[in-house]
Amino acid sequence: MSILINKDTKLIVQGITGRDGAFHTSKMKDYGTNVVGGISPGKGGIEVEGVPVFNTVDEAVKATGANASVIFVPAPFAGDAILEASYAGVDLVICITEGVPVKDMIRVTPVLKQNGTKMIGANCPGLMTVDECLIGILPGNIFKKGNVGLISRSGTLTYEVVDMLTSSGLGQTTCVGIGGDSVSGLYFKDLLEMYENDPETEAVVLIGEIGGDAEEQAAQFIKDNMTKPVVAFIAGQSAPPGKRMGHAGAIISSGAGTAEEKIKAFAAAGVPVAKEPSEIPRLVKEKLGL
């Protein structure tokens, strides 16, 4: 078991003919992901990395039975790409693209709800179920099969933590990068619920950052609903207020969204918060009695 994706996931790549789209299609295929098609309007009929290219998502879904789509198209067109995937009936959309306008994300939200589409991102590294399916830009070689779930608002910081978990003998079930934008798809809370219901996951690592109150909401959810242990880390404890720290969502304004408040919320929910990423494996082991 796992959450969201597994070996039966059939993936299409929107923006497969771009530099990043093509590069990561090959990496995903190397990992064993079942990439069944790609989309590049006007380039239908060709092949990229041995994958057939279609003009529209609809065509690709009809021809391949794809149930997940990963988006690499440039930011001005990403919102439209998400809508196209949702209307084509894809169950899960993962938007890797960085810099998507907030208005575009707000506009897609009711459509996703209406069509029953789940979304990860935008501005995220993707997700993976270890040894089964990798979607996005995560470096597959650092992961190891095991029983820890991981959710993160960051990209590279996630890899850093995964690397530490793996090297201390803690393998993973599914790891999800939810992205750093202020308005995005699935949040911590949605994913914690999935992990709680996944028999294979025994503990969850949550990597949050400053800005917004998704971490506070996650803490409340853990307190009310989780039986499995959660360990957290918050990035941006030294960030100055009012500045956007790279991620559009990482702005502390008017005292809200600070690291202190998030750490306090986790403490109240009995969730240990690591002072630096390298503490995470030890805290997970303590919680699991290893």
Binding site: L157, E209, A235, G246, K275
Partner: peptide
């Protein structure tokens, strides 16, 4: 100089720590 906003924040935090 870091790649990724989250890692960049964590790097700053660590230097402070």
């Amino acid at each position: 100089m870091v790649n990724g906003a989250g890692l960049a924040m964590a790097t700053m935090d660590m230097i402070k720590l």
